[in-house]
Structure formats: structure tokens, C-alpha cells
Amino acid sequence: MSELARSTRTIFWLPLLTGILGIAFVYSLSVGPLTMSFADLIGVFIGQSDDPTQFAVVYKIRLPRTLLAGLVGASLSVAGAAFQAVLRNPLADPYILGVSGGAALGAVTAIWLGFSAALFLPGAAFLGALAALALVYWVAQAHRGSSHTLILSGVIVGSLASALLLFLLWLSPIDQTRAAIFWLTGNLSMAEFRLLSWITPFAVIAFLVLWAESRSLDLFTQGEETAADLGLSIGRARLTIFAAAGIMTASVVSVAGLIGFVGLTVPHIIRLLFGPAHRRLLPASALAGAAFLMFADALSRQLYAPAEIPVGVVTALLGAPFFLYLLRLNRS
């Protein structure tokens, strides 16, 4: 446990993070190009507003978007924490095993074929991500191979997907290229309740599976040999964790594109603040990741309103300095 974690009253993580999440939720609901007072917002929620535009903005735009930001932020953070533990690699993020490349290739193929409407795009991205994961697992024999082989084959499959992706972009006319780049940089504007209902089950089940494997994740951080000595069935545990974290990432990437930084840094920040035990790290990362992405997305809508800036820019600009500060604090 880090110095910082020891000095933090770790017992307070749940109320603290829940409180922050609540603040981020309310903040995200209350900002946007349409000017609405807090009283208006309350009015809409208790059914006292007769302005159909306010009603539509809150229920059809801000609420699904805020919930999607929360779900995506939580999923990426939890998947990141799991990958970092099982690969024993602090640089691991949810995209490390080729998921991002596969999803991107699937999405851009759909855009290129002209199937950008409705559920085609997320569907294609999801299939692409699963195909990439399956290929990586098969090549690296995930249940018995080493984690180095896994990372390597993930990187290579990712590169292969990027190469095909660049070729497709080169084939595409300019409009499609802009649509593809917009998707690749990640955004939450596709938020709709039907998309939420589609990915929520994946995220919830994958989270519960990973949480149940908390003890295995703790053991993995001790090294695989130690873990095996302590009675862990390495192959089974690793396959379970990979499958859960991979599907979790694939489902959120399919609706939100590639939002960087959240999955890499939120688990580190939580580990520094509240310690490395996964029973606490996973739910704490979920709460913090959700709050972080809600906050970042709200800022991306607010800073240059009525225009929107890519949320990935905001996550990196907000998160990187804070992360560096924590690293420095932890060293001293």
C-alpha cells in the first residue's frame, strides 16, 4: 500500500466517491448550450415544466448522455484495472489487447459500406472488437501462454487492424473520413436509451465477474508463479478475467468510440489513494471513472458552446496533470 493510500482514510472511499459521482451527475445534467436554471431542471424532473424543449433536452439528450458517460467511464476504468493486474503491466489499458483496433476497423468498415445508420455502427464495432480479442487469445493461447505473448500479439493484431483501417480511410471520400475520425476520437453524442439498454447488461455482468475474481487479481499482481503456489488456477482465472474485461471494453467502445486516458489512469489514481486490493479497487475505479468521464464530457459541451470539443482531449487535459501531481506526491 502506497504512502498516500496509508495516509488516506481508506474507509471513506465509498461515501467520498459516491458524493463526487453525485456532484458530477448533477453538474453534467445542468450544463449545455440550452440555458436552464437549476429551478428549471428540478421543474423538469418533478413534472412541473411545460416547456417541451427543456423536457427533450433533459430526458432525451443530457440524461442518456450523462448515464452513458458514467457507464463508459466506469467500464474503461474497471477493465483497465483488471488488465493492469493480470498482465502485471502498469502501462496496460483497456485497449491493449487489440480491442481498439478491432472496434475501429469494424466501425470504419460500416461507415465505408454506408451502414452508418442506427445500430449498424455499434454492432459492427462490437463484432470487430470481439474478432480482434478472439484472434489475440487464439494466437497467444491465453489460457496457458505467457502474458508477454499476449501483450505482443495484442499489439500486433492492433497494428494489423490499424493498417487495414488506414487503407479503408484512404479509399473513403472526405465526408466518410471525417465521420470515421469523429468516431475514432471518441464521443458520447450517440447516447440514446436503447444503446444504454444494449450495453448495460454486458457492463454489469462483466463487472460482477471481475469483482468475484478480486482475489485472483490480487494474486496475479504477486506474479504468476506465486499465484500458482498459492493455489490459483492460472489458466482458468486469466481466461475469465480477459473475457470479462475484453467484452466490457468492446461493448463501451462500440457506442462511444475510442476515449483515451480514462482506463489507463483512473485505476492508478485509485490505487495511489486507496490501495491495491481489488475488492475495493474495482468498485472505487468504477465510481471514480464514471464521475471523471461525466465531468469531462460536461466540460467538452460547455467550454466552446454551442460547438463541442472531443471529450478525449478533455480527459487527457484534466487527468494528466492530476496524475502527475499524485505521482510526485507519492514519491516525496
Binding site: G32, L34, T53, V57, R301, Y304, P306, A307, E308
Partner: peptide, 17 residues
């Protein structure tokens, strides 16, 4: 604005109506 051809969210359209 900064960008001659900005990217908007649908909420901006609803706000401008």
C-alpha cells in the same frame, strides 16, 4: 467562432431553435 465549420451537438440546435 474559432472554427468556420464547427461540430454541434443536437442540444445546440434545440437551444438555437
Amino acid at each position: 467562432g474559432i472554427n468556420r465549420y464547427p461540430t454541434w451537438g443536437i442540444e445546440s440546435v434545440l437551444a438555437a431553435d
